[in-house]
Design a protein around this nucleic acid. Sequence first.
DNA 1: GATTTATTGACATTCATAGTGTCAATATAT
DNA 2: ATATATTGACACTATGAATGTCAATAAATC
Lengths: 194, 194
Amino acid sequence: MIQTPSPRHPDGRKQRSERSRQAIVDAMLEIIMGGKMEPSAAEIAEKAGVSARTVFRHFEEMDSLYSEMTERMEAEIMPIIQQPFTGEGWRAQLDQMIERRAMIYERVMPLKIAASIRRFSSDYLMLNYERFVHLERTGLESLLPSAIRKDSTLFSAIEMCAGFQTWRRLRQDQGLTTQQAADVVRLTISRLVD
Amino acid sequence: MIQTPSPRHPDGRKQRSERSRQAIVDAMLEIIMGGKMEPSAAEIAEKAGVSARTVFRHFEEMDSLYSEMTERMEAEIMPIIQQPFTGEGWRAQLDQMIERRAMIYERVMPLKIAASIRRFSSDYLMLNYERFVHLERTGLESLLPSAIRKDSTLFSAIEMCAGFQTWRRLRQDQGLTTQQAADVVRLTISRLVD
DNA sequence: GATTTATTGACATTCATAGTGTCAATATAT
DNA sequence: ATATATTGACACTATGAATGTCAATAAATC
């Protein structure tokens, strides 16, 4: 990360550099959101309006680019995740969490898929994938009553239902709409906790 | 597929060719089952004890190799799938189907993952992926009573629980044992159908 | 406006992978 | 011994990830 000393009017050359860098990440996001799961550096460069050499001036390797993209995505969804629940009681809060996750997963789906299909050839992406699954689990642990948490089969079932890959399967593999997918997750989880 | 006229004693040269071909598919399976999700043609050739050129003599492209691997896998699991259910009633048969699927999914998991991470850059693998999901669905449709089939939310929930990607998530992402994963699937489906 | 400094473009290059053409080497059949 | 099929070895192309180098361009300074 470039540490800028924040002068009164920053260096125009440094601003140009930062514009290039952001354009590259923007291009990556646009290409993946547009449905191409495996953009090449050349494609990203072309969309960003820079040369391929410049892509590798700003990002040491493709993994760095995925990393920046992930940070951008997480910066976007963190405010949603960190919002306190308004519901009274864990059931109402669980409902809210499911609702939020549906929205979040829908938003980041192409990016998550793009990263996940590369995870076997990238230590960084594999660790990041595992970290996300871990966050999914701890998010539930912080919410569910101890009786459910202690029942590992039940807890794992809820964790499975509330995870990104399950959402992706409902939406992409089973072809459900956002509403239908949300209905399926709600139904399954309600049967498990009741 | 090579159409052999089945002579009394087949041509030694043709037998040699067939041995090479099987060695290549065997090598592919061994490398993937050994945990390397993205074997290169060079790696496959080396393990098969043939040259890389020979790999591309027998298989026009890598997709053809995945195709043969898939056929090999399906030939192996078809007898299990086609076995008639012994249980009385759809609930008992559903239990048996879940049991069989757990076994089948466990067996083919590395191959399925290896194929699935390439599906966005291969029409063949994408179609094959979608065909598999379709088979998962129709397998359930042939078994479940019409009341459940008509409730699309409920049916989709069961379909989700009984699918390969859910099994993969439980085993790989959530780190459950085969037994624990089967317990989760049984619990979730029993809550849905009861 | 000239000069300096930083950023980028253009190009050649390497390495890995998928894939192909060609010819010699080897295995098998006659 | 000769003919035929299969394969190995090698050179090659294309694509993608990545790097080195130098000129072109943009921005800052004098």
